[in-house]
């Protein structure tokens, strides 16, 4: 094979390599979300109520404790699981009972869930129970208009009244 032919073929092979790298660095296009879809993210971290209420220590009990340990309330560390439900247009799409984190189950319960939904108007009903007994103590019902590609984040903040719908 002549030197010229070798260099020509080398050039073509280098070009083919570069073209392959260039192509797969940008293509084929990946469709991550449908053209008419929006996205809902249910995401929060919430420390539920304790499994039992705090109890006031008696003076006798306090006297038995070291002076620096004399807290007036005796509170169990363990927290209640969090039950959460999400309805979309009247249909239950998510339900979970989330245990608190931590070896003693005394930390927050966290929820993360994502769901693509068709763009348009939707009614969302979010419910949460963060206590050992009784029904849902936080409920929020909203109607939102979701444009294609829009992200609706459903967060929870007990100090701000419960569920927050962020867009």
């Amino acid at each position: 094979m002549s030197t010229l032919a070798r260099y020509l073929i080398q050039g073509m092979l280098y070009a083919a390599f570069a073209a392959t790298v260039g192509y797969f660095s940008n293509a084929p296009t990946y469709r991550h979300l449908g053209a008419d879809d929006a996205l809902v993210r249910l995401s929060f971290s919430h420390a539920a109520q304790r499994v039992a209420p705090c109890r006031e220590r008696t003076p006798e009990e306090l006297a038995k404790l070291a002076p620096n340990m004399r807290a007036p309330l005796d509170c169990p560390r363990e927290r209640s699981p969090v039950t959460v439900e999400l309805e979309l247009d009247g249909r239950l799409v998510f339900r979970n009972v989330v245990a608190p984190a931590g070896l003693r189950r005394d930390l927050a319960s966290t929820v993360y869930w994502r769901q693509a939904v068709a763009a348009g108007e939707h009614r969302f009903t979010a419910r949460m129970k963060d206590r050992p007994e009784g029904g849902f103590n936080f409920v929020k019902d909203v109607v939102v208009e979701l444009a294609p590609g829009r992200v609706l984040v459903i967060d929870f903040d007990g100090t701000r009244g419960g569920f927050l719908f962020r867009m």
């Binding site: 797969f24 991550h32 979300l33 053209a35």
Partner: peptide
């Protein structure tokens, strides 16, 4: 823009090729 979700992407399949498998 975290308020919206990318719908289509020019993905680098050489480095990120396994990401679509997550979904």
């Amino acid at each position: 823009d975290l308020a919206t979700e990318p719908q289509t992407l020019a993905l680098d399949w050489l480095v990120l090729g396994f990401y679509p498998l997550i979904y």
